[in-house]
Design a protein around this nucleic acid. Structure first.
Ligand code: ZN
Ligand code: ZN
Ligand code: ZN
Ligand code: ZN
Lengths: 135, 135
DNA sequence: CTGTTTATGTTATGTTGTAACACAGATAGC
DNA sequence: GCTATCTGTGTTACAACATAACATAAACAG
């Protein structure tokens, strides 16, 4: 478990967030379900409902290209600007960062088109430094 | 049907690409399957195998946040730099563009981290100009 | 204390994507 | 010609991801 104690999570939300924090990396909803069976979880909806709230709170991010979820890398995070993720295809490591400059340029484009931007998905696939070195 | 005639597609590849071109927007694999049943398609693998090749050729893009596929908006396209997509959540319209400037900044970040970038997923969700006006 | 909201539990179902195996056609080498 | 190999195809079965529908319970405002 860790951080984010300032928000009162429900029991299920706390269990799901704890799983993701402990994992230190992305987990699928069904992987979380298996981790939490000993805590009484029985059905995928228990996980998905908690994840929906945690994503809404900004404490968890969804990785669209992995169909997985990851705890925000910021301590005591209650939400921040558009995040991006560098995903290593060798080792599965995920690094979160906040490319405000690139997002600004994307936002410029949407504004020039009259498109009202609500949220962004930016996921970079490749090979991390460690895996490049070892492979 | 349309364009891309310079590449020799197999029968199934041509049928799948034709469906996507005719649709003028994103389709899920199963939607394509239903469209092609009258052409003899019976199983999802027939669609997925064709889509894999079309994506490899750069003629079709996968939209991760929709679990859907869309024909490249460029005529006679055999592949191009990193594409991005603005997806209207009201009407479902998808606009493809190529934000070289923003991708350059993202690439700068990956290089500073020793991350070998292979490909990008950039999907912007929001409301298109027409839907903003009418809503 | 009653109507409303939020969270939860449970069953069943819907949607998206692959594994495994069999077969057909092209084609390159002998 | 006749194999070996590669690519594309067809089919069944299954795995993985996500939600609908309905019931119950706790929290809380009027
Ligand atoms: Zn974050
Ligand atoms: Zn790695
Ligand atoms: Zn394109
Ligand atoms: Zn629209």
């Amino acid at each position: 478990m860790s951080a984010h104690a300032h928000r009162e999570l429900t029991k299920n939300q706390a269990l799901v967030f704890g799983s993701l924090s402990d994992a230190g990396g992305p987990l699928t909803a069904y992987a979380i379900l298996d981790l939490l069976r000993e805590d009484g979880f029985r059905a995928p909806l228990q996980v998905y409902r908690a994840l929906d709230k945690l994503v809404e709170f900004g404490m968890v991010h969804r990785l669209e290209s992995l169909n997985a979820f990851v705890a925000c890398s910021h301590k005591d995070c209650t939400g921040h600007g558009s995040a991006a993720f560098a995903i290593c295809e060798k080792c599965g490591d995920v690094r979160e960062f906040t490319p405000d400059d690139a997002v600004g340029l994307l936002k410029n484009w949407t504004e020039s088109q009259g498109f009202a931007l609500a949220r962004t998905t930016i996921e970079l696939r490749g090979t991390c430094k460690g895996c490049v070195a070892s492979g």
